[in-house]
């Protein structure tokens, strides 16, 4: 056996390594092509197709009608309502989570770990169940209403209103805001805050000019992690919202399961996906690393 190194051997060796990599990737690669990329492609195709009279879809006579529908008042209202609620949810989460994350980051390690575990529990708990809990809580004559009545505010009817939806969304996604914020604030070198105070900044100025910019990556990551699923939410508005609070998710589902207008549903889903891809790209651009 001769084992003399040559450029040819090096090239062949390199090639073999590449082949090994590809082989390792291949099962999941193929799986994702068949069960993800291909379905995605079909959705895009469907969005350009026409609904026929029987509720089926004709894959011919391609047109942009389904996208044109996005301009219709009903769809537009739903679109803006969804955007509005998603933004509102994100802001409320930020307002609650920022001080919380700061508080968490400034505790000793034992307290911090315990507190973190109690954030992780709702984070990992069944999402449907957590929404259902609010349905019970906010129901007519439910515990919440009883509480407000007891406190003298009278009966409250929150269930099936946009407020209930926002409460549910905040409840569902708050941990997604807390965790990246905590990670960002925890990384900050405390001496820069002291330096800021030393240089005559008051508490607010220190927050505004030092803490906030340094924790920006966490703010962006958390905001996207909350905004994106809020915009596409389906379960929460279905359980806590009413007929007047139809959001994008429910609209899409109804196009498929009720109206049987698949092209319209496909077009809206595609647009929704594009918005989320855009948001995610913004996140990566701004220096975020992992979801």
């Amino acid at each position: 056996m001769t084992a003399l190194a040559t450029p040819e051997f090096e090239a062949a060796n390199e090639k073999q390594k590449r082949r090994r990599g590809l082989l390792l990737a291949l099962p999941s690669y193929l799986y994702l092509i068949v069960f993800f990329a291909f379905p995605l492609l079909i959705v895009v195709l469907y969005s350009f197709a026409t609904r026929n009279r029987f509720g089926g879809t004709d894959l011919s006579g391609w047109n942009l009608d389904s996208y044109a529908r996005l301009g219709e008042p009903i769809v537009r209202t739903i679109l803006f309502r969804s955007l509005g609620l998603a933004i509102l949810t994100t802001l409320i989460c930020l307002l609650l989570a920022y001080p919380f994350a700061y508080f968490l980051a400034t505790r000793g390690s034992t307290i911090r770990n315990v507190m973190l575990v109690f954030v992780m529990i709702p984070f990992w708990s069944n999402f449907l169940v957590r929404n259902y809990a609010w349905r019970v809580l906010l129901g007519n004559d439910g515990p919440f209403s009883q509480l407000t009545e007891f406190l003298g505010f009278g009966e409250t009817r929150v269930l099936f209103t946009p407020t209930a939806v926002v409460i549910g969304l905040v409840y569902g996604f708050l941990p997604f805001m807390i965790l990246p914020l905590y990670a960002a604030i925890e990384r900050i070198d405390g001496r820069v805050l002291e330096a800021s105070r030393d240089l005559y900044a008051n508490g607010w100025q220190t927050f505004r000019h030092v803490l906030w910019p340094l924790s920006r990556s966490g703010v962006i990551a958390g905001s996207i992690l909350v905004f994106v699923p809020s915009l596409g939410a389906y379960v929460t508005p279905e359980i806590l919202g009413g007929a007047k609070t139809t959001l994008l998710g429910s609209y899409i589902v109804s196009q498929f399961l009720e109206a049987r207008n698949w092209p319209a549903g496909a077009a809206v889903s595609f647009v929704l996906m594009t918005v989320m891809l855009g948001a995610t790209l913004v996140y990566f651009r701004s220096g975020g690393r992992n979801l």
């Binding site: 959705v43 389906y234 998710g249 589902v253 889903s269």
Partner: peptide, 13 residues
């Protein structure tokens, strides 16, 4: 990244 609803639609179609 993809929203649940979009993925649901994809798989159904």
């Amino acid at each position: 990244i993809i929203p649940d609803v979009t993925m649901a639609v994809m798989m159904l179609i």
